[in-house]
Design a protein around this nucleic acid. Structure first.
Lengths: 200, 200
DNA sequence: ACCTGAACACCGTTCAAGT
DNA sequence: ACCTGAACACCGTTCAAGT
């Protein structure tokens, strides 16, 4: 009873949106955004490039699909299942997982804040959801009213550090792992203090 | 005595490497990296695309030239002419100038830590020079021995904040200018404290 | 109903030919 | 000595034709 799965077709689809998305993501990590051609993706799923247009509007939409999938995965990676009694530990855990994710998905993560061709940028609404666990955790440190700027300091640092590391920008030696761990603590100490500048 | 300037030529050059670089930079800011085509640059300097290859190896080298020029300009923008008695004020000034530069050169700055086609990335040595004024200023705050990780926290934050702002990532409202100013102070307060984590 | 080759537009790059 | 049109390779995209 094939009919229970779907309508009979003279020629059933030889690929799917899901397979195309997975292939595109794999090609991106292997060969970078320039290597993410319609032909490369098509070859990976076993069809010719024109067939992709049955499932994808165009290359920009395919890139956006990959970017959105990366955002969703990062969201999962940052979710806090069981909050610790010490919010600072939760923020350290978020920082650790953030960096692990960027290292595991360097090219994919690079899509999130890059300037991409029109229509290829990830959904801003989904991207904004990433802030939630960070904002909540920071709020447990500094209180709701001061949480937004403090969370922005944290997320800017986490994004900046991991992006620069990904680009190979830390070239002056030293222990990068230690610098990252020290960074969270610098921010935790900084946001825990008074709101007025330290120098006055 | 034209000979004093250069050898006589049947057809003197109608453009120059300098003009091509300036045109490429302008095209980049106007139309993004995708719009930075050889034809667009050629049109801007008044020749046809093939003529560019008399001055530039290929498109990747042209992009690298632009990126290196941006790095050089940012280096100038961050240089501290007259150190203040209060190193924290100097770090705030660096932060302010860093953000102003990114806002004035959004597409150009985007080249510095992006994943570019092979051969298009800026010279890592030049890029590393950007760290010098930051490292020196941070050293005046925390001492030479702790300067490197502290400077990495600062530069990661500055890069991350300005990159995210450039990408339009701060969408939850609030005062972005204030969040940036607060961020420097968070880091200043954080690096001025003890080296051990705040939570223990 | 999906897949494909062929075709077209566009871009990077080379090169023989113009001046 | 520099510039150009023509040519080639490559990629995104469309579409008529195949099954």
């Amino acid at each position: 009873m094939c009919g229970m799965i779907g309508p009979m077709s003279p020629t059933p689809a030889r690929t799917s949106s899901h397979a195309i998305l997975a292939a595109a993501r794999a090609v991106l990590e292997d060969d970078g955004l320039d290597g993410l051609t319609m032909q490369a993706v098509a070859a990976r799923v076993g069809v010719r490039a024109p067939s992709l247009y049955k499932h994808v509007v165009d290359r920009a939409a395919l890139i956006r699909g990959v970017a959105d999938a990366v955002v969703a995965d990062l969201e999962d990676a940052l979710a806090i299942s069981r909050p610790s009694a010490e919010p600072g530990d939760d923020l350290r855990a978020i920082a650790r997982r953030y960096r692990a994710f960027v290292r595991a998905n360097p090219a994919g993560y690079g899509l999130l804040f890059a300037d991409l061709p029109a229509g290829a940028a990830p959904d801003p609404g989904r991207l904004a959801l990433l802030a939630r666990p960070i904002l909540e955790t920071v709020a447990r440190v500094v209180g709701e009213s001061d949480a937004l700027p403090a969370a922005r300091t944290f997320v800017a640092w986490a994004h900046g550090f991991t992006s620069m590391e990904r680009a190979g920008a830390f070239r002056l030696g030293g222990d990068i792992d230690a610098a990252y761990a020290a960074g969270v603590d610098v921010i935790l100490r900084g946001i825990s203090g008074p709101v007025t500048p330290a120098s006055t």
